[in-house]
C-alpha cells in the first residue's frame, strides 16, 4: 500500500527518474486494450456486426477525447502525489464561460478561449495554493473547491446557456480521414504532457515531488511551486475539455462535467494506465491506454447493447483488477 511504497522509495536520494520510467506499466494496458479489441471483434462479429468499422473507430475516439484530455491533466496531478476532484465542475464552468463569451459570434472565439484559460488557471492556482500554503489535503482541498464551483454554477445557471458559433463546432465534429479533430487535440495535449514530463526539469521535479516530497525538498526542489504549477496545468486540461464539450454541445451546460463523471472517471483512467495513486510512478502513455481501454469497453458494451448496470459492474471489476495486477508486479520485483 501507500506506506510500503513510501518506505520502498525512501533511499537517501531521489530515485533516478529513468528507473521510474522503466517501471511504467503502459505496456500492460495496451496489451489489455488489444485483448478487449479482439474480444469485442469476436463478440460483435458473432452477432453479424463489424467492430472495426470506420464509424466505430471514429466513435471510440470521439467518446474518449474529452475524458482523455482531463485524464492527462489528472495524470500530472497524481504523479505529483496529489489529485484533483474539482475537474468535473470546472469542465461545466468552462463550457459555460466559453459558450457565453462566444455568444454565437466567430470574432469572440479567441477571447472565449482566453477567458476559459484564465478561469481554469485561476482555479488550478487556488487548488495549488490551498494544498501547499494552507496545507489542506488535496482530497479535501479540491473537493471543497468543487463544491464552491458547484454553488456558483447553481446560482448563476439553471440550464444550458450561451451559443457556440458554427466555426467553433468544427473542433467537435470535423475529422481528417479517420482522425477526429478532437482526438488530434487530445493527442497534442498528451504529447505536450509527455514532453513536459520526460524532457524538462519541471517534469523531473513532478516525479521527484510525487516520489517523496520530503526528499525532493531536501534536495533543493521548491515543492510548493511544483505542486501549484502542476495543479494549474491540470485545471487547464479541464478547461480544454470544457471547450471541446462546448463545441460538441453547441452551448455550455452546467451539468456536462458531472454527468460525464469526469472527476472519478479520470482518476480511474489514470490508475488503469498504471500510474501509482501515491504519485511518482507512471506516465502519460499509460493514461492514454487507460482512456482508450475504457472507451473501447464502452463501445463493445454499446455494440452488445449491454445495460448500464452491468457496465458499472464490469468497469468496477476491471479497474480493481488492473490495479491489483500492477501492485503485484511491482511488489514481485521489489521482493
Amino acid at each position: 500500500m501507500s506506506e510500503s511504497e513510501q518506505i520502498g522509495a525512501v533511499p537517501a536520494r531521489t530515485p533516478p527518474f529513468w528507473r521510474t520510467r522503466g517501471s511504467s506499466p503502459a505496456g500492460v494496458v495496451f496489451l489489455a486494450l488489444a485483448g478487449v479489441i479482439l474480444i469485442g471483434w469476436v463478440l460483435v462479429a458473432a452477432r453479424g456486426g463489424q467492430f472495426l468499422s470506420l464509424e466505430n473507430l471514429v466513435g471510440v475516439q470521439q467518446r474518449s477525447a474529452a475524458l482523455g484530455i482531463v485524464a492527462i491533466g489528472q495524470t500530472l496531478a497524481i504523479l505529483a502525489g496529489s489529485l484533483d476532484l474539482s475537474v468535473a465542475y470546472l469542465i461545466s464552468l468552462s463550457s459555460l464561460v466559453a459558450a457565453e463569451t462566444m455568444a454565437g459570434r466567430d470574432g469572440n472565439i479567441v477571447i472565449a478561449v482566453a477567458a476559459v484559460a484564465g478561469i481554469s488557471a485561476a482555479v488550478g492556482l487556488v487548488n495549488g495554493l490551498v494544498i501547499t500554503k494552507l496545507r489542506v489535503h488535496p482530497f479535501i482541498a479540491t473537493f471543497g473547491v468543487a463544491l464552491i464551483i458547484k454553488g456558483v454554477l447553481d446560482h448563476l445557471y439553471d440550464g444550458p446557456a450561451g451559443k457556440v458559433p458554427e466555426s467553433f463546432q468544427h473542433l467537435g465534429y470535423d475529422r481528417l480521414g479517420p482522425l477526429p479533430v478532437s482526438a488530434i487535440l487530445w493527442a497534442a495535449v498528451a504529447v505536450a504532457a509527455w514532453f513536459l514530463l520526460r524532457r524538462t526539469t519541471l517534469g523531473h521535479r513532478i516525479y521527484a515531488v510525487g516520489g517523496d516530497q520530503e526528499v525532493a525538498r531536501l534536495s533543493g526542489v521548491r515543492t510548493d511551486r511544483v505542486l501549484i504549477v502542476t495543479h494549474v496545468l491540470c485545471s487547464l486540461c479541464a478547461g480544454i475539455a470544457g471547450l471541446l464539450l462546448a463545441s460538441r454541445l453547441g452551448a455550455g451546460a452546467p451539468t456536462v462535467g458531472t454527468d460525464g463523471g469526469y472527476d472519478l472517471e479520470s482518476i480511474a483512467a489514470v490508475v488503469l494506465g498504471g500510474t501509482a495513486l501515491a504519485g511518482g510512478r507512471g506516465g502519460v502513455g499509460g493514461t492514454v491506454g487507460g482512456v482508450l481501454l475504457l472507451a473501447t469497453l464502452d463501445s463493445v458494451f454499446n455494440q452488445m447493447e449491454v445495460n448500464s448496470f452491468f457496465k458499472d459492474v464490469v468497469r468496477g471489476v476491471v479497474i480493481v483488477t488492473a490495479v491489483a495486477i500492477y501492485a503485484r508486479r511491482k511488489h514481485g520485483r521489489r521482493a
Binding site: 500500500m1 501507500s2 510500503s4 472519478l264 482518476i267 480511474a268 490508475v271 495513486l277 501515491a278 458499472d312 459492474v313 468497469r315 468496477g316 471489476v317 479497474i319 480493481v320 490495479v323 491489483a324 501492485a327 503485484r328 511488489h331
Partner: peptide, 15 residues
C-alpha cells in the same frame, strides 16, 4: 492485493 483503498472502494462503489 495492495490496491490503494481509493481505487478498491471506487471499484466497489461501481460494482
Amino acid at each position: 492485493l495492495r490496491v490503494p483503498s481509493f481505487i478498491t472502494t471506487l471499484g466497489m462503489m461501481l460494482i
